[in-house]
Design a protein around this nucleic acid. Structure first.
Length: 424
RNA sequence: GGAGGUGUCGCCUAGUCAGGUCUAUGGCGCCCGCCUGCUAAGCGGGUUUCGGGGUUAUUCCCGAUCGUGGGUUCAAAUCCCACCACCUCCGCCA
């Protein structure tokens, strides 16, 4: 939720953002009206309540007939107070509901447009020329089979489409990636976290995943719990309803958890292999900071992502995502796209969002700053999404014989081996 | 899942049985000031959070807030109901 005060100071700022997102601009006028109504209702209630309190004191002192007379007056007043209280509650929750439907404010300098209107910020590394090397690259599924690393057939048998098993070297590869990612994050000063993958509705709602993204989320109705699509959800809710010491900011957390996504609406898209799956594991960075530092923290998260991908010797690009393609909670988002040889293009492998105070307001995460108590800013960024990173590693580092070169950074976590070899 | 206990504005705590100056007590911690060569002690003041209003430099006024939500009542920290969290014990389980 954005700061309601902006409605009275700069509603045009919200209009610009809504326009950039391609969302309703009329919502702003509704919000202003609802805010007005809310304040009126509250003022009415407060006045009656003060009267009631005064009369109550008189009653407590009065005796005999005077008391009887006062009781009669205050009895009718009580009904009015009750009605006014209900009216102000209703007006307040109407306003809150509207505010919750409002996505975060996009920064003015975010590129305009939709999914295809991203801006390529940087390009790192060079895709290999397999033709020059004299062989046609195998896709990750074929490599995974040769290496005995990925089993999608049995994944489908056991759990359905878009499920897989990582087996043998594949399982070891994921474990190595986790360890490398956590080791790097520790060097950068992050606190490691193993968060729950099941969360309450408030956590899901607070992080902004129950809006337009709701159909992509698994829900367990028997317990009213949600399966998280990213550990961001639990990490953001970790400090909900808390007032942090400003001196403890910025707080850097790195979480590892499974991620579950229904992938509704992506039927027929990326059906081959493990590019788009209902479950994968991910190491995720999460930051709580002073809103004034959010932009610089965002750049740091992006730098960490780049460092990690580069350490795995993979060619990639950094994109700034256009306003119309931002999630509900992001004010700005950078994606890193890694090169996939058999697709001949760059595909998403990491994503980092600056959510400014949006999630913190909804989850009530505040800090005691010099100017008073206020919402913090939250940011998140992928350090390593396992399935996609495995795809990039297998495809980019494959050799003509089906073996796969292991980047030096990963070797210590793979028992020192320099390549993954086909299994008989 | 069963039984019992606990939940008060940072921490501890008084108040709950007998509803009404509770406008929530006291201590610790913290902040400001005084005193002092410095520190400590001492003394004085302040110290929940949210919302509304007045000023926008500080301050001030009003309403809500005693785990959460309902109910009873003119009036609820206090009485009633439901829920939540934690603790102890029992059962089950990795």
């Amino acid at each position: 939720m954005i700061d309601p005060r902006i409605l009275r100071t700069d509603p045009d700022r919200i209009r610009r953002s809504q326009e950039a997102r391609g969302e309703s601009v009329e919502l702003v006028d509704e919000l202003v009206a609802a805010d007005e109504a809310r304040r009126g209702a509250i003022a009415g209630f407060e006045q009656l309540r003060a009267e009631q309190r005064d009369l109550g004191k008189q009653v407590s002192r009065a005796k005999g007939e005077e008391r009887t007379a006062l009781l009669a007056r205050t009895k009718s007043l009580a009904a009015d107070v009750k009605a006014a209280s209900a009216a102000s509650d209703a007006a307040a929750s109407r306003f809150d509901e509207l505010m919750k439907s409002l996505p975060n404010l996009v920064f003015d300098d975010v590129p305009r447009g939709g999914e295809d209107d991203f801006v390529v910020v940087e390009t790192h590394g060079m895709p290999r020329d397999f033709e020059a090397e004299g062989f046609a690259p195998r896709d990750h599924l074929e490599l995974g089979t040769i290496l005995g690393a990925i089993d999608v057939e049995r994944g489908a048998k056991v759990s359905g489409s878009r499920f897989y098993f990582l087996t043998g070297q594949g399982a070891l590869l994921e474990l190595a990636l986790i360890n490398l990612a956590i080791a790097k994050a520790l060097e950068w000063g992050f606190t490691p976290m193993l968060p729950p993958a099941l969360v309450k509705p408030s956590a899901m709602e607070g992080t902004g995943f129950l809006g337009q993204a709701a159909q992509d989320v698994y829900h367990l109705p028997a317990d009213d719990l949600y399966l998280v699509g990213t550990s961001e959800v639990a990490l953001a809710a970790y400090h909900s309803d808390e007032i942090l010491d400003a001196a403890s900011l910025p707080r850097h957390y790195v979480g590892y958890s499974p991620c579950y996504r229904r992938e509704a609406g992506s039927y027929g898209k990326d059906t081959k292999g493990i590019f788009r799956v209902h479950w994968f594991d991910k190491v995720e960075m999460f930051v709580y900071c002073d809103p004034a530092d959010a932009e610089s923290e965002h750049q740091r998260l992006l730098a960490f992502e780049k460092d990690f991908i580069a350490s795995l010797e993979l060619p990639f690009q950094v994109l700034e995502v256009a306003a119309g393609d931002l999630g509900m909670s992001a004010a700005r988002k950078y994606d890193c796209y890694g090169w996939i040889p058999t697709q001949g293009k760059y595909r998403e492998v990491t994503s980092t969002s600056n959510c400014t105070e949006f999630q913190a307001r909804r989850l009530n995460v505040r800090a005691r700053f010099a100017g008073g108590v206020g919402a913090v800013a939250t940011l998140n960024g992928t350090l390593c999404a396992m399935t996609r990173m495995i795809i990039l590693l297998l495809e980019n580092h494959q050799q003509a014989d089906g073996s796969v070169h292991v980047p030096a950074a990963l070797r210590p976590y793979l028992g020192g081996r320099a390549s993954l070899l086909p299994v008989g």
